[in-house]
Each structure stands twice: as C-alpha cells, then as structure tokens.
C-alpha cells in the first residue's frame, strides 16, 4: 500500500494520530469479537461460581445446528433477505430506467424518491405495521374487499410479507441512486447504434443496458443482502418481535433474544460467530469485485 513519495518524518506522531481510532477498535470491536469466539467454545458456569465455565470444543455449534428453531431462523433469514433484495432492487431499477428518460423532471422525481433513505428501519417497520394493522389499517381494509383476510398476528406469511415490504421500502432510494448513476454512465452511442440496427426499446434494454449495469447490480446485490441480514433488526424488533410462531425470527433478532432475554451466552456466542463468518464472506466478495473493477 502506497504513501506519498515524500513523507514527514516523526517517530511518535503517526502513532499518536492513529491512537484514538486503533484504541477504540481494539476495545470495542476486536476484544468483544475475540470474547465471542472464546465464549462460543465454552459452556457457561452458573452465577455463583460453583460450576466454573467448561471448555466444550464445538458442542455449542453442534447444538445450534441440531436446533430446529435455529434452522428455521436460517431459512426465515434467507427468505427475508432474498425477498427484500429482489423487491427493492427491481422496483428501484424500474424507477431509475423511467427517470433516466426524463430531462426536465429528472431532479424533482429524484428528490421524491431519495428521502425514505433517511427513515430508520425501526420507523419504517412501525409505519407499515400501522398501515397493515388488521383492525384499523388501510391495506387490510382494501384486501378485505377483494376477499383476502389479512392478519399478520396469526399468519406467518402475512407477517413475512409485511416486514419484507417495510425493509425494502426504505432501501429503494439507495438502489435507485446507484442505478441512476449507472444508467447515466452508459454511452449514448451504443444505444443509438443498436437503434439504427433496428433493435426496439426492450431489446436494447436487455441486450445492452442491462449487461452494462451488471457490475452495479452485483455490487447492490451484496450490499442489499448485508442490509437485509444485519441492519433490519429494528424492523423486526419494533413490529413482529419474531412472531407469529417464529415466522419472522431472523438471525440477528434471534442472537439478541438468546443473549439478552434468554441469557444463553454460549449459544448466543456461537450464533455471533456464525454471523461473523457470513459478514466476512460477504465483505471479501464485495472487495474482490471492487479490485477487479479498478483493474479494468
């Protein structure tokens, strides 16, 4: 990794400059993660110190992957992450393609579409929870007219649809901005050449525009999966609380419940380690992709 050709020389100054960041990282990031790793291979002792913590190798992990509730949570997380990602990305792409055609109204549409990014996931959850409220909400009222009895308090699928919509809604803005930037960067000459060769609008989109957007699409795919898996705790906690009967119990919510409410430190630590490995894999994928793009 490079520095400037010419650098300042000082024995202590660079360390002093780095110190605040590094100290905070060590205390609040590295040390707790190390603790999680350690706790994940111990069975916790009791509160009175009669039974000390015991080293149990991978028993916590074995127990975790034998636990139907955890397997359910993995599956729920997968459905939730895929649903949120597909919904927010496809809607955002549609909006971006449409806005990209506009000249005068481009900026006003953009303004109207970007602000939901400012709304916290927990608040987005509460907003949609209110709209979907079975007794007073507006959407169940409309669904009732077409004969669908909406109730996310009883029906797991309804609850899942609700949290996916709430989580995707706020993320549309983000995806929209990136797609719009990507579309604006596509050279017009390519599209004109295809048009002269007689390609229609849809053919041009699928054979030229969409392939050229693929780096951005892939990047957004990773970012959205990370968002849906790790940043959506608030959506679940403020609305369904994992229910009904575990239907929306995503991994980050479960690790919180097991650690803070059920006080099962060993299992919670093992879950943390699984989550850490997922983030590490996703980060590596994201960065490898960026390196490739830089080397074009």
């Amino acid at each position: 990794m490079q520095t400037k050709r010419m650098t300042f020389s000082s024995k202590w100054l660079p360390y002093a400059l780095l110190a605040p960041q590094v100290i905070i990282t060590l205390i609040f990031f590295i040390w707790p993660s190390f603790q999680a790793l350690r706790q994940s291979v111990y069975r916790q002792g009791d509160a009175f110190g009669i039974r000390p913590p015991r080293f149990v190798w991978f028993e916590n992990f074995q127990a975790l992957f034998a636990d139907p509730l955890y397997l359910n949570s993995l599956q729920v997380t997968a459905v939730f992450a895929i649903g949120t990602t597909l919904l927010s990305m496809s809607v955002a792409l549609l909006f971006a393609v449409m806005v990209n055609r506009m000249i005068r109204s481009r900026d006003s549409y953009t303004t109207f579409l970007v602000w939901p990014y400012a709304i916290a996931p927990a608040i987005a959850g509460v907003l949609w929870w209110f709209i979907f409220n079975p007794s007073i909400g507006i959407l169940p009222y409309m669904l009732d007219m077409v004969g669908y009895d909406w109730n996310h308090r009883r029906d797991g699928n309804d609850a899942m649809i609700m949290v996916i919509i709430a989580a995707a809604w706020r993320q549309i803005s983000y995806n929209f901005l990136f797609f719009l930037a990507g579309l604006a960067a596509i050279p017009h000459s390519l599209i004109e050449a295809a048009a002269i060769d007689g390609a229609g609008r849809f053919k041009r989109f699928w054979t030229i525009v969409f392939p050229l957007l693929s780096p951005i699409t892939f990047f957004l795919l990773v970012i959205n999966i990370v968002y849906a898996m790790f940043d959506t705790f608030g959506v679940i906690h403020a609305t369904t609380e994992g229910g009904p009967s575990q239907a929306t119990n995503i991994l980050v919510y479960k690790v919180y419940r097991d650690g803070f409410v059920n006080l099962n430190i060993g299992s919670s630590a093992a879950q943390s380690v699984v989550l850490m490995s997922i983030v590490i894999i996703l980060t590596v994928i994201q960065f490898r992709y960026i390196e490739r793009r830089v080397n074009y």
């Binding site: 990031f29 707790p32 993660s33 980050v252 650690g259």
Partner: peptide, 13 residues
C-alpha cells in the same frame, strides 16, 4: 477489520 464486525454480530460481549 471493523468493516467485518458490525454490532449485530457481537452484541453480548
């Protein structure tokens, strides 16, 4: 490394 360690994955410690 901080990129890889969001609060959500190390809540209890």
């Amino acid at each position: 490394l901080t990129l890889m360690l969001p609060v959500e994955v190390r809540i209890v410690p």
